[in-house]
C-alpha cells in the first residue's frame, strides 16, 4: 500500500515537471498579459499624462463611442456572414474531395495553398485584385461590358470584399477538417442507403449531415473564434475603411495601442476577450468537449 502511494506521488511530481514549462509559458505569456490588460483597462494610461486610476470610465467612454459600436457591429456581422459562408463552401469542397476522380491528389494540394499563405500576403493580393484601374475584378467586369466598380469604396462593397478575401484564405481550412469527418463516415451506410433507393440529396441529409455534426461544430468553433479576432486582412486590405466601416474590434484596439492610449485600448480588447470567451464556452458545451476528454 505504502509503496503504491509513494509511487503515485513520484509519478505525479514527474508529471508536473513535464507540464511545468507548458504552464509557465501559458501563464507568463498569455494569462498574465490578459490579466495585465484587464488591470490596465481601469486606468488612464497615455504617455503624456500621469497614470491615473479612473475606474470604469474607459468602459463608459467606449459605450458612448459610436466608433466602438460600429466596430463591434462590424465584427459580429463579419462572424455571422463569413463563418456560415466559409463552412458551407468548405463542406462543398470537402464533398468534392471525398469523391474518387482523376487528379484528386492535385486538387487536395491546391486547396492547401490558400491556407498556407499568410493573411497579410493574401490581403495584398486581393488589394491588387480590387484595384480600380487595373485590378482583375474590374478587368472581368470590362470583359462583360460592365462599368468598373470601386470595390473597396463603399461600406457594403468593402465588407463583401473583405469577406471574399477572408473566405479565400480560410475556406480550405474548413474543407480539410470537414473532409476528415466525411472520410470517417463508414461507406457501408451509403451502400445500404443505395439499396434502399435513397437519392443523392436524401443520402446527404439523412446520413452525411447528422454524422458530420460533431466535426461541423468543431469547424464552426475554430472559424468563429478566428473570425471574431480578424485583424491581418483588414489592416492590409482596407485599413479599416472606408470611413471606419471595416474596423474590427481587434483593429480598433490596435489603433489605440499604437497611438499610445493603453487604457482605452485595453478596455476595448477586454470586451472582445469577454465575447470570445462566452462564445467558446457555448461551443464547448454544444460540442461536448468535456465529455470527450476522459
Amino acid at each position: 500500500m505504502k509503496k503504491t502511494s509513494f509511487h503515485i506521488d513520484r509519478e505525479t511530481r514527474a508529471g508536473i515537471g513535464f507540464l511545468a514549462p507548458l504552464l509557465l509559458c501559458l501563464i507568463g505569456l498569455i494569462l498574465v498579459p490578459v490579466a495585465g490588460t484587464i488591470a490596465t483597462s481601469v486606468f488612464r494610461d497615455v504617455p503624456y499624462l500621469p497614470k491615473t486610476f479612473i475606474g470604469a470610465a474607459n468602459y463608459v467612454s467606449l459605450l458612448n463611442d459610436p466608433a466602438f459600436w460600429r466596430s463591434l457591429m462590424f465584427t459580429l456581422l463579419f462572424v455571422l456572414v463569413s463563418v456560415p459562408l466559409e463552412t458551407v463552401f468548405g463542406l462543398g469542397i470537402a464533398l468534392v474531395l471525398n469523391q474518387v476522380f482523376a487528379g484528386r491528389g492535385m486538387l487536395r494540394a491546391a486547396v492547401l495553398i490558400p491556407w498556407a499563405v499568410p493573411a497579410a500576403v493574401s490581403g495584398r493580393i486581393f488589394e491588387l485584385i480590387y484595384n480600380y484601374s487595373y485590378g482583375a475584378a474590374n478587368r472581368m467586369l470590362a470583359l462583360l461590358h460592365m462599368e468598373p466598380a470601386n470595390w473597396l469604396g463603399s461600406a457594403s462593397g468593402a465588407f463583401l470584399g473583405v469577406v471574399a478575401a477572408d473566405a479565400w484564405k480560410t475556406t480550405p481550412f474548413a474543407a480539410i477538417i470537414l473532409l476528415a469527418g466525411l472520410s470517417a463516415i463508414p461507406e457501408d451506410l451509403y451502400r445500404q442507403a443505395r439499396v434502399d433507393r435513397a437519392g443523392t440529396f436524401q443520402r446527404f441529409f439523412r446520413i452525411t449531415l447528422p454524422l458530420l455534426r460533431p466535426v461541423l461544430i468543431v469547424t464552426l468553433l475554430f472559424r468563429t473564434v478566428d473570425a471574431l479576432r480578424v485583424f491581418d486582412i483588414l489592416y492590409v486590405l482596407t485599413g479599416g475603411g472606408p470611413g471606419g466601416a471595416t474596423t474590427s474590434l481587434s483593429l480598433f484596439g490596435y489603433r489605440y495601442f499604437s497611438a499610445g492610449d493603453f487604457g482605452y485600448a485595453s478596455a476595448a480588447t477586454v470586451i472582445l476577450f469577454g465575447i470570445a470567451f462566452l462564445l467558446s464556452l457555448v461551443y464547448l458545451k454544444l460540442g461536448g468537449f468535456s465529455r470527450e476528454i476522459r
Partner: peptide, 11 residues
C-alpha cells in the same frame, strides 16, 4: 477623418 470620410462616401 472617419466622419468626414463617411460624408465623402455618401454614408
Amino acid at each position: 477623418q472617419r466622419q468626414i470620410n463617411s460624408a465623402l462616401a455618401g454614408h
